[in-house]
Write a protein that binds this DNA or RNA. Structure first.
Lengths: 354, 354
DNA sequence: AGGCTCTTGTAAACCGGTTACGTAGGACTG
DNA sequence: CAGTCCTACGTAACCGGTTTACAAGAGCCT
């Protein structure tokens, strides 16, 4: 066991050629006669040579590494996103550096600054709150490729990948209206965020399209968190809302809201219908199984990586915006509103609403 | 906006000193008279200089980066672990590279090999299956620091951090026995794994300690996956098992098992008591809320990082093994076995078993 | 004045790759 | 036979930091 790890020059000496020859040969930038090639290969094997990545990075000016900035990987939604990103990155030969921003502007900016240096080749940026502009500038100043994923950061020049939130709101709204609801509540994310606005707009489109007299009552906005969900539910109940159904804008909010509804004995869907958004948590096993809009999380992760890498390779992707398709998963948490006929309460999804 | 990013030599020239002076000054390895220091600081600011990380890494031979090898980040258990690891690493000034092994030996070995080069300073290794020895050798050959986390890899020389699985099995077993169960089933993880063996041993200890005549019936072993959970439940049911309670060895297995139990109308806990392990999923909201052994996931992640970094700093940590304390969270999925008195069916945890 | 130690700084050698440019020798060409 | 091309490599200049070895001048002592 040698104490020292082999360098390129060791291999070159053993193979009796120059370092340039070895380097170019190993990087397939040079054809060599079989005999020389064999000598090099033998020397590589003998020394158990692997190129030093730091040297390689410095020399090439890149590291074949991407960074993912995400509010919190413990959150199952971001965990899934991260898994998809990692998979696609690995497949394309890139490593992935994970950066948890904990949803604070300060840490987001820190990461942007650090990564912009040239620690990584590109950045996938997922934020979870409205930007006051102090994110836009550092991102645009970054010399690296950046793709915005999942939630918009206004004013950033560069590609974006979202799920089709508007369509999600629309599908949810249409379903509720079809089921007979005429007064719908909305437990939303932060008010200033695009995802929130888009989902609300989708509900409105569904309402307009239905031609029915449907009202959105008690729309609450706040963080994508169980706390906010609890607060929504509490305010909803104490307001004596007349809404018969509620669209809950994320799994996290849902978890908090259900806790309160359950505590207060609000039966779902008998007394109140609920429809979720994200569909990451094992909602099949909830009581009742939750009808939900499913976000195309895997696809989002993969598309973001793919775009980023294409950008690194020189393609012009700055103006790409993608809206990936959501899906309505029918389970048991939406029924006809109380007081109406309870026929056909149970329906099954044609796709895979287990 | 300069097209070129500033280098150390640019700063040096502007400050009218040599690069060495700037470098040492910036790394606090040199006291300078106020006037010179100010000149350098001014030059740094003017050029918006940040050291090139690749060059720094090459020169220093380290990258202040750790790697986390984990079967699958989409799995909430590993997601939580990853979050804890990232947080602690960030706090100590290290970046984190994420590597998903997808639980395949091949990818695990690939990662070990790649990372051993010197891409990262240290590795936290989490596997999820029994090793046939082909992991042990590359890990031991690695020039980097490695800490084994969560699941043992036999024969590896180095520090380890586990949860106290034996104690988890014991707490679960004791609880079931106290509730009156005399025939207990075990839906385990892979048979050859330490975590599985330890949990089983814990149940046995509880049985021995109780002095009662308690039997472990229908112990099934397999992957930590919903599929395995479904299979366990199906075999359990078709075998007409006499067990009145089952210890389910992970959230994932639980999710699969509950699916089958629910489908077949097995009421929990009336007909069958279940107790989980991990307690990551939002089991509070399940029907019924699940009693579970909670693993100290955050602590595990942080301890692993802390150990690793201490090792990198030269401390001798090779023989450290830590077993972090688990906790029994009482909720509603364990009752007295059918046929017995149903008194005191509901109990609350003294800690925080909400 | 000569010899010391500090202070402040420099020049140059690393770290370990990649690559632009060059060249020696043989084959082919007109 | 000179000119040209191709093969098969070698030399040395990068990439951008850190650090060792060393020096010039200042202050101080004897």
């Amino acid at each position: 066991m040698s104490t020292k790890v082999a360098r390129l020059s060791d291999v070159a000496r053993t193979a009796e050629v120059s370092v340039a020859t070895v380097s170019r040969f190993l990087n397939n930038r040079l054809q060599l006669p079989a005999e020389t090639a064999a000598r090099i290969r033998r020397a590589v094997a003998e020394h158990e040579y692997t190129p030093n990545p730091h040297a390689r990075n410095l020399s090439l000016g890149r590291s074949e590494t991407l960074a993912l900035v995400v509010p919190d990987i413990a959150n199952p939604y971001f965990a899934r996103l991260a898994a998809a990103v990692e998979r696609e990155a690995a497949q394309q030969g890139y490593a992935l550096t994970l950066c948890a921003s904990l949803n604070t502007l300060q840490r987001e900016r820190e990461y942007i600054a650090r990564l912009s240096g040239s620690a990584v080749d590109g950045i996938i940026f997922v934020s979870n709150h409205a930007d006051d502009g102090s994110l836009r500038d550092p991102i645009n100043a970054s010399s690296r490729g950046v793709v915005i994923l999942d939630e918009d950061v206004a004013g950033v020049i560069g590609p974006r990948v979202f799920s089709d939130n508007e369509q999600g709101g629309y599908l949810a709204g249409r379903h509720l209206i079809e089921m007979g609801h005429r007064s719908i509540s909305f437990f939303g994310g932060p008010q200033a965020m695009r995802s929130t606005e888009a989902r609300l707009a989708g509900i409105r489109r569904a309402i307009a399209e239905s031609g029915q007299d449907v009202a959105i009552r008690d729309a609450f906005f706040g963080a994508y968190s169980p706390e906010h969900g609890r607060a929504c539910a509490a305010r909803f109940l104490s307001s004596g809302s007349e809404a018969t159904a509620v669209l809950v804008s994320s799994d996290e909010i849902m978890i908090g809201a259900l806790e309160i509804f359950r505590r207060d004995g609000i039966r779902v869907p008998d007394r109140l219908s609920v429809i979720g958004f994200d569909d990451i948590a094992p909602f099949v096993l909830f009581d009742p199984p939750l009808t939900s809009i499913r976000q195309p999380v895997e696809m989002m992760g993969r598309r973001a990586v793919d775009l980023l890498i294409r950008g690194l390779k020189g393609e012009d992707i700055d103006s790409v915006i993608e809206y990936l398709p959501v899906e309505l998963i029918l389970r048991g948490s939406v029924a006809h509103p109380a007081g109406r006929k309870a026929a056909a309460t149970k329906r099954r999804s044609p796709n895979r609403g287990e």
